[in-house]
Computed example of a mutant assay.
Amino acid sequence: MPIVRNSFIQMTKLSNVKGRITYISSHAKQENLYAVYETTERKFWRELAKCNQEEFVKSGTEGKCIEARELIIALPESFVEYQPDMLLKLFTEHFKQNYGTECISALHHNKRKTNYHIHLIFSERKLLDEPIIKIASRNRFYDKNGKHVRTKKEILGEDGQIREGCYIVKKGEVYEK
C-alpha cells in the first residue's frame, strides 16, 4: 500500500553554507543520496560566504550572518519513478531561471525511505559576469573591527603607532571586490 502524505516546503536561513553543502551532498553523511546538481562551481559558495560575512561585519548587526537560504521540498513518493539526475536538474534549473540565482541541490530519502525530498540551497546575491573592484582614490583607514574610519588619528595609539588589528589600504590599492 503506497504512503499518502502531503507535500511541503520548508525554508531555512543558512549561517554556514559551505558546511550545509557538504552535509547534503556527501554520500558518507547521507545514506539515501540519489543525485547532486550544481548551477555553478563550488568556489562561488566560498566567495559568497566570505562576501556575506564581510558585509555583515561592516553593518555592525547583532546575531548570525545569513550566507544563503535552503528550501527542503517534499516530493510525492511516485516521483521515485523518474530518473533522479534529470528530476533534480529540472527542479534546480527551473528555480534558477525564475529567480536568477545560483543553486546547489541534492535529492534524498530519509533513513526509513518515507520522505523523498530535495534540498535546494540558493544565493540571495546574483553572480556577476565580472567582479566589481573598488580602488582607493586616497588612503583608507580601518579600525580593529574592519570598519572604515575617516582619519588616521582614529586608528593610532598613544604611542603614535597603528593599534593592533587596525590597518591602512593605500591609495591605488583594491579595498573592496
Rank of each mutant, 00 (worst) to 15 (best):
C166I: 03
E55W: 05
Y37R: 04
I118V: 12
K171M: 07
K134T: 01
K96E: 12
T151L: 03
G160M: 12
L71E: 09
A74F: 03
Q83D: 13
T40H: 08
E55F: 05
C166V: 01
T92Y: 10
K144P: 00
K171F: 01
F79P: 01
T12V: 11
C51E: 14
E164L: 06
G146S: 10
I168K: 00
R112F: 02
K144C: 04
K58F: 02
G19D: 14
F8L: 10
R138N: 11
G100I: 01
L156W: 02
I24N: 11
M11V: 14
Y82A: 09
V149G: 05
S137V: 06
I135F: 07
L14I: 07
I24C: 04
F122H: 10
V174S: 04
E67Q: 15
V149D: 10
I133T: 11
K29T: 00
E54W: 03
Y175L: 10
S25A: 14
I66P: 00
R163C: 07
E93H: 02
E77Q: 08
F44D: 05
K13G: 07
L48W: 10
A35H: 11
S26M: 09
K144W: 02
G100P: 07
I118G: 09
Q83F: 03
C166N: 12
N145H: 09
E31K: 13
C65H: 01
R46K: 13
K134Q: 10
F44T: 01
